Amino acid sequence: MVNLLVANAVPAVDVPAALDELAHGNPTRFARARAAGATPVIGEFAHGLTQSVACSEWVPGYSQADLLRAGRRAFPGWPDTVLAQAPQLPFQHAACRVWNVPDRTSIQRVTTASAVPALVLSGTFDSKTGARWGAYAARTLARSTTVRIPGIGHWVVPQSPCAQKVLGSFLVRPTAPDTRCVAGLAPKPFTITPHPETA
Rank of each mutant, 00 (worst) to 15 (best):
P79W: 03
H47M: 15
A199D: 12
P87W: 07
R109F: 12
L167G: 03
A84G: 11
I107D: 15
A74H: 04
V10R: 09
L89G: 02
C96M: 01
T193N: 12
A137R: 14
Q159M: 12
A54C: 13
P11W: 03
V182K: 12
P76C: 03
P60W: 06
L171Q: 11
P158Y: 02
R29A: 07
D178W: 00
T39R: 11
A65C: 07
T191M: 04
I42Y: 11
G153W: 01
V101Q: 08
P150S: 07
A74V: 03
N100A: 12
F75G: 06
A137T: 14
V147I: 01
T198D: 07
V6N: 08
S106W: 11
V157K: 10
V82Y: 15
I149C: 01
R180C: 02
A33M: 04
N3I: 15
A183S: 05
A135R: 11
S56N: 06
H195Y: 10
T175R: 15
V6F: 11
F45I: 05
I42C: 03
H47A: 15
F45C: 09
L22S: 13
Q164N: 07
T145A: 12
A113H: 15
T146R: 15
R72P: 06
H47W: 15
S63Y: 00
P150H: 05
G151I: 00
A74T: 09
Q164T: 07
V10Q: 11
P189D: 02
V41Y: 04
P196K: 05
T140P: 08
W99S: 12
K188D: 13
T179C: 13
A115L: 14
A118M: 07
F45Q: 03
P87G: 04
V15P: 08
P150W: 01
A7G: 03
A31M: 05
S127D: 13
P174E: 09
D103A: 10
G134I: 00
V120K: 06
T146L: 14
P27K: 04
G130V: 00
T129P: 02
E57Y: 01
S114C: 10
V59N: 08
V10I: 14
V147Y: 10
Q108G: 15
R139G: 05
A31C: 01
C96W: 02
G184E: 11
A94S: 13
V182P: 13
V182M: 08
A18V: 04
N26V: 00
A31L: 07
E57K: 01
P102Q: 03
P40R: 03
A86M: 12
G77P: 06
G48Q: 12
C162G: 01
S127Q: 12
T28I: 11
A118S: 15
C55Q: 00
F45R: 11
S56R: 06
E197I: 01
W99E: 09
P16A: 03
A12N: 10
A137H: 11
F190N: 11
A7I: 00
V101N: 04
R104N: 14
C55D: 00
D178Q: 03
